[in-house]
């Protein structure tokens, strides 16, 4: 095996024996799991399977009890969340979390600024700073928000705010994108737009996609993992997951009842 192949084989994210308990409840149970470079890895599972807890551990808001998180070959298990963000772990939140009193543009500019790493600048007026505005406008265009760039985040629709979350995550030039239910609470139309948006990102970013919308997950994902009670019961291509008897019992069958 050459060095190059070895690097390619090393996944962007690898979880080894990850465990998180809350009192007597095990939210994450000795989980082994990886996200490969350039893939969309779907993560599904019934409510309470520990999906959001897992995302929080990867992002760093929660500290695991056991196991390790390897990001690009580097152990980040105990790194602070803002340090992980600097390394390239970006997250969109399940419950929308943006700067509500900022304009859409200012939101993305904030993320661009954070990525650039020059935040102890005290003098230059950012509302005329093209090194922030230009990339931010590009991202707004990418997610289809050009028209509402000057609107305050608290005044736009829910769907637009979810798109904004994505633009902010992309502004960080992420090496790993954690999307926690990007379609949650969206109508058909907005949801459809989000799916085609994510499709354009396919291959360009390594994405961990947590989503309840089965159609979306099976359309978008290269691989899917099924999480039940904090354990990964199956990983594989969408076709393989569809035909997996264990998954049907534990999850898909559960859903149809």
């Amino acid at each position: 095996m050459t060095l190059n192949e070895k690097i390619e084989k090393e996944p962007v994210l690898r979880l080894a024996g990850l465990t998180k308990r809350f009192g007597g409840i095990i939210a994450t149970d000795h989980l082994d799991f990886d996200v490969r470079a350039g893939e969309i890895h779907g993560l599904i599972g019934p409510n309470g399977a520990g999906k959001s807890t897992l995302v929080a551990q990867i992002q760093g808001n929660l500290r695991p009890d056991e196991g390790s998180i390897i990001f690009e070959g580097r152990d980040i298990t105990v790194e602070a969340p803002h340090r992980r963000a600097k390394l390239g772990v970006a997250r969109s939140f399940q419950i929308t979390s943006v700067f509500m009193g900022f304009t859409m543009l200012a939101n993305v500019m904030m993320a661009v600024q954070a990525q650039a790493g020059h935040s102890m600048w005290f003098w230059k007026n950012t509302s005329m700073d093209s090194s922030l505005i230009d990339p931010a406008m590009e991202l707004l265009e990418l997610v289809g928000l050009t028209r509402s760039a000057q609107a305050l985040a608290q005044n736009v629709s829910y769907g637009e705010r979810r798109q904004l979350e994505l633009a902010m995550a992309l502004a960080m030039k992420p090496k790993l994108l954690l999307l926690d239910e990007p379609m949650a609470g969206m109508g058909r139309q907005d949801g459809g737009r989000m799916i085609s948006l994510l499709e354009t990102l396919k291959g360009r970013y390594s994405i961990l996609l947590v989503e309840h919308d089965m159609d979306a997950v099976f359309t978008l994902s290269d691989r899917i993992s099924v999480l039940v009670a904090g354990r990964c019961i199956a990983t594989g291509s969408p076709e393989k997951i569809k035909s997996d008897a264990g998954v049907r019992d534990a999850y898909l069958g559960h859903k149809s009842t």
């Binding site: 992002q59 808001n61 969340p81 803002h82 963000a85 600097k86 970006a90 997250r91 939140f93 979390s97 943006v98 700067f99 509500m100 009193g101 900022f102 200012a106 500019m109 904030m110 993320a111 600024q113 954070a114 990525q115 790493g117 020059h118 935040s119 102890m120 600048w121 005290f122 003098w123 230059k124 007026n125 950012t126 509302s127 700073d129 922030l132 902010m168 502004a171 960080m172």
Partner: peptide, 23 residues
């Protein structure tokens, strides 16, 4: 209105978000 000022205003808006984008 500077970058520093943006961080301060952003921190009063949403600290969780600010941390998630790396600050």
């Amino acid at each position: 209105c500077s970058r520093f000022g943006n961080v301060i205003r952003a921190s009063s808006e949403n600290e969780e978000r600010l941390t998630a984008i790396g600050i």
